[in-house]
Design a protein around this nucleic acid. Sequence first.
DNA 1: CTGAAAGCGCTTACAG
DNA 2: CTGAAAGCGCTTACAG
Lengths: 341, 341
Amino acid sequence: MNKRKATTLKEIAKKLDISISTASRALNNHPDISDATKEKVQQLAEKLHYSPNLFAQGFRTQRSHILGVIVPNIAHYFTSTILKGILEEAETKGYKVIVSESNNNENKQSEMLRTMSQFGVDGILLALSRKTTSVDSILNTLDTVPLVLFDKVSHKIPCTQVVVDEEIAAFNAVEHLINTGKKRIAIIKETENSFNSEKRFAGYLRALKEHHIEVDKKIILSTEDVSLYKGRMMTNILLSLKERPDAIFAITDTAAIGAIKALHKYNIKIPEEIAVVGFSNSIHATIIQPSLTTVDQPGEKIGKTAVTYLIKEIESNKNEITTKTVTVKTHLIVRDSSFKV
Amino acid sequence: MNKRKATTLKEIAKKLDISISTASRALNNHPDISDATKEKVQQLAEKLHYSPNLFAQGFRTQRSHILGVIVPNIAHYFTSTILKGILEEAETKGYKVIVSESNNNENKQSEMLRTMSQFGVDGILLALSRKTTSVDSILNTLDTVPLVLFDKVSHKIPCTQVVVDEEIAAFNAVEHLINTGKKRIAIIKETENSFNSEKRFAGYLRALKEHHIEVDKKIILSTEDVSLYKGRMMTNILLSLKERPDAIFAITDTAAIGAIKALHKYNIKIPEEIAVVGFSNSIHATIIQPSLTTVDQPGEKIGKTAVTYLIKEIESNKNEITTKTVTVKTHLIVRDSSFKV
DNA sequence: CTGAAAGCGCTTACAG
DNA sequence: CTGAAAGCGCTTACAG
């Protein structure tokens, strides 16, 4: 299959008896070229279905108009939502998007960064894999190609980072519980201090503090992966406590759903006995019974924002590295797993 | 940001005082080159972190090693699952993947096909947008670049198509209901005859026929988009019937979940009064109460298979077009929305 | 306003 | 076993 007998600039130039340079410039609307010539060239190009060989162009100009995206897991709903935003924004700006999955594997992530920069993408969008401990490979690629971090970020990397207002969102979620009369609010968070978990925990603490509620370590539970299964397990632990909590704030929707499943098992009334709040507004949130109160994270907006900043960096040919955290707003969606105020 | 001061072949050649040609060949393990030279070159290349400029290489060889993927909606779970398979297989075969969303918009789909083929992808993976009526633009790109259809396919397009054993899967699902004693099985399907809907309906009919159950048009419901909302509506209709069905086979998990929600509302016991079976094994299937009996479609396998066939076509430089339907097996997962046999 | 020429980094017939 | 040279299709200083 090698029929790609595309029209080239040369052919156009020949037919019109002009030079290739002129043809090229006419097509690119160069101010030097006369209107008459431009029209002539552009018409013929149209007629012949001319389209520039983007590979030649990219090779020549050292600009591929390709953006590389690396995410831990593409089948994660929130991630695919961000990707949607990335694709849309990139397309309107005239960029193509190459996608890769790190599978939460740090080595793979490093390798992908290398491959992508070597491939010649104009910029990279990265959501850090879990437990990214060695930042070296990232700093390295940062030297060669613009890079923007989103969702899973780290302040150890000096670059633009697009995140959600994690701390405020968590604060609002917990305050909402307090406002509905809950006084003993448990949290299910991550063991390792990821950026997200840390911020959400900080929001939790601040809400308690501002409302003069004492922190009780017995109802602060940590787990390595905040999964449905772990949500269940943690909730079982909470239920075994002498003083049960009257609300659970899970740092993740899946863990919140695990909590709900555990509460179901013990026939505990939600939200009367124990309210549950999640984080993410995943698609499950309205499938589960009762529907889940949770923080809505605007995935598409995050994606679009990340692309916008990345392209800005690409097109401002400055060699400097921007360190800047862009925060996208979230809002709490109150559903049936907590009381309305 | 233009520090990409990558090592080039020229530099390597110069340092070793050999020609660029030799350096190139040494790196590519060309049989003509002596082992001594090869080693020398490869060692230096390693030391200098040489990596070929893939754009130059692609430009020269007319091979980009990029695959283009076009899907209706990337945030659809099943789709993201397929994508996962595509990414993985492509990576192991040394291809990058450009992803685009058609948003179920036929014009956009055509445009993307054009852009991709003009961009110079080596092959295209396409899941048809809903209501793709005009096949022309697809036939056109089929002339210029290998293309494989997956999931949403059409036999109007002469190319390799990777699908699931839709008819058999539906047959098994309906037969399962029959085996558990259900006699009056409703179906919720699509109005327009998409490939998927048509096959699943055929499987439904065959199961009834083989078990000598009469077809009753009153419990064959069609809707344009087989969504959760529509699943609910259709179920309401079924419940208003004089002779209610004792089972519902929804062509889609989301519609099945809509059905379950509607049945909940009327306090109808699942599966005792009415059993429900879906299709897809979406992530919701175990979140909903009762958990959903459904057909598991191996998304990753579909993705991998599609890539395998596409690359085969790309690398066999034959100019001929293969028309071939590859079927990936599914299996029924029996959960709580239907009886175990 | 237009053209000749160099060159982006690589591969590959051709020659020896 | 190695090298000189052409060329992939384009853009862009330079010259006029």
